[in-house]
Design a protein around this nucleic acid. Structure first.
Lengths: 344, 344
DNA sequence: TCCGTTTGTTAAATCGGATTAGCAAGGTTG
DNA sequence: CAACCTTGCTAATCCGATTTAACAAACGGA
């Protein structure tokens, strides 16, 4: 990009020393003896010329580019994305690293191509991320490399994973309901997501439900029912409408996502039921809408920012990486959708 | 990162030629004469060894890193972000480029530091982006560099800009209302955003309003009122509630953002007014909630994906960049919130 | 005074490619 | 047959740093 940059040779020339001396002075290495006078002259010359080292050239020799590759399936789709990247970016910036962000769109071939593009540029490490917590098989190019898995698990792949603590979140949802006095009339909307596309449920669904039922059962409470459906707004609307139409009168709804909650709010509103007066709602994710719905939604926040940040922190920690699963807590965002159970 | 990579020297050795010949064969240059036999042997050797060029090393000589820097103020905050980056990423991928994504968080010093970090890594060009359309002064390090401004304008800075066509969007909002028969009882909620923080209004607000009023006036219609307020959900809720409480009975609301629309929906719902039966609503942005609100919101979409894509396309177009403002259309997403004016 | 250190500095090699300049072998032309 | 082209290939240099090895000069001790 335009005008010739000032090189170390320029600095050395101006300071009247050899490039070697300039290099040592600039890198501040103490194992090589440089007189204070020379050092100062080099530093001064560098300052005057506005010298900046060419990281590309340096890394050719040092093998370290101060650069991390970030490969994900989908950057865009709402819940994940922004915050994860922001967390990763900030952690990287604090450590003087830059991130190559890439998106493969779920295409294996594209994924391999992108990983190659990253490795060709000598990235120091790669973060392999998915937008929804799931099991993955990283592309073979990543085997033996410095990798951290973000929001996904890969049994047999030797790398640390960073995932939300969905199990504990399920427990916390139950605790929040119990604390308000709910012990019956509790329904889960969305369930494990044992829908045709994912017949065994998804990780988030399975763990949230497990934690939820575990704590409920331990307190002598239980779920009146679990409605398995997809996790979007129309699903929540449809299922809650159907539930009410069938004559049920839930006291509390555990919606598996905020989008489901929004659909539930719509159905409840149309049926003339108020939240939390008639029905309490507790949710998961803490998407933007959660705080903006009326009443504001009490939900367990997906710790996107911290996930992204932790992935970078781990990968830049010195020493070999340990294949440990790091579970990041999902904090309860207490807002206004949980109240005491309705009488009757 | 681990195991020694195969270098061009390895390929040359295996093919029994000099590194020079290998280089020419691999880069497929026709101006240097290489016999078909040698070329095939080199290519074969490269294939067998799984050779991949070291882009870092190459760019030391060629000055081109096939890399673009992306600097923005805020990546995360909703409307912008994801889609812009996705558009940029896809366009870059199609052209075998990678993107360094960075976020300065509105901090000038951090911004300069990040631009330096990018230039130190020899990026071929830089996209300077903001999350909301506004005037900017790019950091001085970017002067004279290959830059495209994304979603912002910088008079006096010699670079192309890519921005949404807010003016035409305002016109289209008016046209949508007129087409449904609305000519009076039309209120704008959010206005130019001449709030204390931005007393002169913001670009999006000013242009949307200008286009809106221009087309309305040209058809003999007009706005009954413009309510200036911030552009979030609580603002829309508060202002529409107040409007109704003051005894007004609007037939159509032009909400300056989908968030404002959501607040308007809440206020209208509480007042027992239906959309679009009693009140039509037309909005701007097309955030996620727009399609999920009931009734689904008719809105003018911010062309995030295309903005990101166009910025990369421009920057990778060969030849010098022209300081032109590229206005990307904001398509009308016709959904269910506009109806015929209520009788009376 | 001579020899071994210590100190300060630099020439040269290296990293992995791209590029320039030149060289040998074979083919043409006059 | 000498002079001149092509053709095909390679030695050497460069890009901008880091790093190794070596070398003067000053110093200290015997």
């Amino acid at each position: 990009m335009s005008e010739r940059r000032v090189t170390m040779a320029d600095v050395a020339r101006r300071a009247g020393v050899s490039p070697t001396t300039a290099s040592f002075a600039l890198s501040g290495r103490t194992d090589m003896r440089i007189s204070a006078a020379s050092r100062d002259r080099v530093l001064e010359a560098a300052r005057e010329l506005g010298y900046r080292p060419n990281v590309t050239a340096r890394s050719l020799r040092t093998k370290s580019t101060q650069t991390i590759g970030f490969v994900s399936d989908l950057i865009t789709t709402t819940p994940f994305a922004g915050e994860v990247i922001r967390g990763a970016l900030e952690a990287a910036r604090e450590r003087d690293h830059l991130l190559f962000i890439t998106e493969a769109g779920g295409d294996r071939a594209a994924e391999s191509a992108l990983v190659h593009a990253l490795l060709d540029r000598q990235v120091d490490a790669v973060i392999y991320a998915t937008m929804f917590t799931r099991y993955v098989t990283p592309p073979k190019e990543l085997y033996g490399r410095r990798v951290v898995l973000l929001n996904c698990l890969a049994p047999g792949f030797d790398a640390p994973c960073v995932v939300p603590d969905e199990l504990e979140a399920g427990r916390d949802a139950a605790r929040a309901l119990l604390a308000a006095g709910h012990t019956r009339g509790i329904w889960a909307i969305g369930g494990h997501q044992t829908v045709p596309a994912t017949p065994e449920g998804i990780i988030a669904g399975n763990e949230r439900m497990r934690g939820l039922e575990e704590v409920l059962r331990a307190s002598g409470a239980r779920l009146d029912g679990v409605i398995e459906c997809d996790w979007n707004t129309p699903d929540g609307y449809r299922e809650v409408t159907a539930l009410l139409a069938a004559g049920h009168r839930p006291r509390a709804l555990v919606c598996l996502t905020d989008r489901v909650s929004m659909g539930a709010y719509q159905a409840l509103g149309e049926a003339g039921l108020s939240v939390p007066g008639d029905v309490s709602v507790v949710s998961f994710d803490d998407q933007d809408i959660a705080s903006v719905l009326r009443p504001a939604l009490t939900t367990l926040k997906l710790p996107h920012y911290r996930l992204g940040r932790l992935a970078v922190e781990l990968i830049l920690r010195s020493g070999p990486l340990e294949a440990v699963v790091h579970r990041v807590p999902m904090p309860l965002q207490e807002r206004a959708s949980i109240g005491a159970p309705a009488a009757g």
